[in-house]
Amino acid sequence: MTNSSRQISPQTLRMLAVRDARDRAAFSELFDYFAPRLKGFIMRSGTGSGQAEEIVQDVMLTVWRKAALFDPQRANVSAWIYQIARNRQIDVIRKENRPLPEDLAEPPGAEPDASQILAVEQETGQLRDALARLKPDQREIIEKAYLGELTHQEISTQTGLPLGTIKSRIRLGLERLRHELKDAR
């Protein structure tokens, strides 16, 4: 529904306000939305309430401190925070330093491109709709996979994993990356 309005979502605007203006009111709204979800998300994998809150605190502080790394042309806010949460959870629970890919170099002085931001949001909306339309058992597999409840062997053998919708997101994302890198030359 928001797809047709062609407006950048309030969530993204809040995160941009945190990134560019260190806006505490915007951060407070992001906290109210994400912190309870993050706690639920972290507790799903068996972490107790107290430790889950410590991780939530670390994640929200990382959102504030590393806001400069938020790039809405590549990831929407939830996707970005999801990755921060998984990293932190692995560092704390498994006591490992999770290997992360090199950051993609931003073209110097790159102008934010609203149409690219909207494209990311639109695709995320399509992904959300597609997941919502799945049969409950299929949706549960997806949830378990991304909550980290399946081993890599289990993910590999899950033939029911409906990755088709993710495939189109990959293709569009690749086009955007190529576009960004072209500008970087």
Partner: peptide, 29 residues
């Protein structure tokens, strides 16, 4: 594969959006 990784993060973000929230301690914020 970076594009594919981005897409999987997007899927993870959707799951995070839909997960049931837990009440927070009052002092956390």
């Amino acid at each position: 594969c970076r594009a594919a990784y981005d897409a999987h993060q997007a899927a993870g973000g959707v799951v995070l959006d839909t997960v049931a929230g837990e009440d927070l301690s009052e002092s956390l914020k």
